[in-house]
Amino acid sequence: MARRIVDEPSEDVVANAKRDRAERRNPFGRVLLFLRQVINELRKVVTPTRKELFSFTGVVLGFVVVMMLLVSGLDYGIGWLVSLVFGNGTVAG
Rank of each mutant, 00 (worst) to 15 (best):
M67N: 07
M1L: 14
V46Y: 13
R24I: 07
V45W: 12
I78R: 04
D20G: 03
A2S: 14
F34G: 08
G87I: 04
V13W: 07
N40A: 08
Y76I: 08
N88A: 13
G87E: 01
R19I: 02
L33F: 03
L53M: 15
I5R: 02
L53P: 15
F54E: 03
L81F: 10
G79C: 15
R24Y: 14
F34I: 08
T57H: 11
R43Q: 10
R25Q: 04
A92K: 04
G58T: 02
R3G: 15
W80P: 02
G73E: 09
S55F: 01
G62Y: 00
G93Y: 11
N40F: 12
E11H: 06
S72V: 15
W80F: 12
E23F: 11
V59D: 14
R21M: 00
M68S: 11
R50E: 04
R43G: 01
F56M: 02
S83N: 11
I5E: 14
E8N: 05
P27E: 07
T57C: 07
N88R: 03
L74E: 10
V82S: 14
F56Y: 10
L42V: 09
G79D: 12
G89P: 01
E52M: 00
V59K: 03
L33E: 03
V71T: 09
D20V: 00
R3K: 13
L32K: 02
G93V: 06
V65R: 05
R50S: 06
R19D: 01
E11V: 14
L32F: 09
P48C: 09
F56G: 02
A2K: 06
V31L: 02
N88Q: 15
T47P: 08
E11R: 00
G58V: 13
T49D: 05
Y76F: 14
V91P: 00
L61F: 09
T49N: 07
A92Y: 05
E41V: 00
L81W: 11
V13M: 07
G29K: 12
V85Y: 14
L35E: 15
G29D: 13
F54A: 01
L53D: 13
G29Q: 14
P27S: 15
E11Y: 06
